[in-house]
Design a binder for these strands. Structure first.
Lengths: 197, 197
DNA sequence: CATCATTGTTGTCATCGTCTACTTTGAGGT
DNA sequence: ACCTCAAAGTAGACGATGACAACAATGATG
């Protein structure tokens, strides 16, 4: 007796998200279709509509989950007892590794277009990620390890340096492994500047 | 007598590209359809196929044109007689302004997926853009204005800082005007580092 | 002026996202 | 134990899209 799948899936929402992330990783966002997703999951083509109002809603959910994973990884890798340079280098490595392993997802996370409601949640995700770096900068400034200047701006610049390198790897301009390999150097130049001392 | 348009358009390819870029700027890449483009241009839905094998081929052409404009702007703004800091600041301003005015296009330019053939041309576009910064760094290093280190890597880091900020504005995290306003500061910190001297 | 590659056109196809109407299911109240 | 009913799934339809094929107009070249 082919015990055909029960009418109700159980946790279709999670299954869809999981399948979507795999497709995203393997074939890119362009070839991610709700119908194909439904097929893979063994439900009808309209079933995803019960859990995601839109295709964008699904992508937003994916991005949100991405922010959560990234923030967790960063928070887990932050050791406040370390001096500035090694502390920041460790975080940079985590960020660049995440970028290398989740290139398409990261693009989604930083994408402009979101569902009206999700924009705020997205901002929260950004804040949580940025928060880690904020603390590092603030701590360092308190210890006099960093120049006196608007800390928010310093965080932004630090983030920009990382995000820029990540963007190069995502775009295929830079090999991910190579990017990881130059992390030490990147943080060194960020802290010491390009000018001779 | 409605002198109906001649059978041959004259320069459909250029017209399509122009129309495509306007749509890209106004409504984003997601709502850019070949058929809609054909309608706007007053040709049949299959006509674009004569000039662009693919939708991606059109997007690639758009990106290529973008690289050309960006490189021109940078090359035009580079004044080799200036000392490092103002020279680099001027270039940074041009880059950030381009990013602000061509957000969607820039995303296309840095996109991963390109038509097999176009990838090399794309790389050439990157090289030309990077070349400007390469020269600045090399000149400065020759004059001792910059630390002794692999110049290619220094260029990469400089580009990363800029690209990161640009990415933030493209993603809507940072206001374009605000980004432009902090250009001086950005270059200052890039050159002098975050550590106190 | 005949030829014929270019550049258009029309028609068709599979796929997609979304909507609506219908069906199955199972949890909660009585 | 039964009823009710909202949640979650299904089937079918619609309009739009990208791609392709077969055909038609055009105009440059010989």
């Amino acid at each position: 007796m082919s015990r055909s799948r029960p009418y109700h899936h159980g946790d279709l929402r999670a299954a869809l998200l999981e399948s979507a992330e795999r497709t995203l990783r393997e074939k890119g966002v362009a070839s991610l279709s709700l119908r194909e997703l439904a097929r893979e999951t063994g439900v009808s083509h309209a079933a995803p509509g019960r859990h995601f109002k839109d295709k964008r809603a699904l992508l937003d959910a994916l991005a949100l989950a991405g922010y959560d994973r990234l923030a967790r990884a960063l928070e887990g890798a932050d050791d406040p007892s370390l001096p500035l340079q090694p502390r920041l280098t460790a975080l940079a490595r985590v960020y660049l590794a995440f970028a290398a392993e989740n290139a398409e997802l990261l693009a989604l996370m930083y994408a402009r277009k979101h569902e009206p409601g999700a924009a705020e949640q997205m901002a929260a995700g950004v804040d949580r990620t940025v928060g880690v770096f904020d603390r590092v900068i603030a701590d360092a400034q308190r210890r006099g390890e960093i120049v006196e200047a608007d800390p928010e701006r310093l965080t932004l610049f630090t983030g920009a340096a990382l995000h820029g390198i990540a963007g190069f790897t995502v775009g295929g301009i830079l090999d991910p492994a190579e990017a990881l390999g130059m992390t030490d150097d990147l943080i060194h130049h960020l802290l010491h500047g390009l000018r001779p001392r």
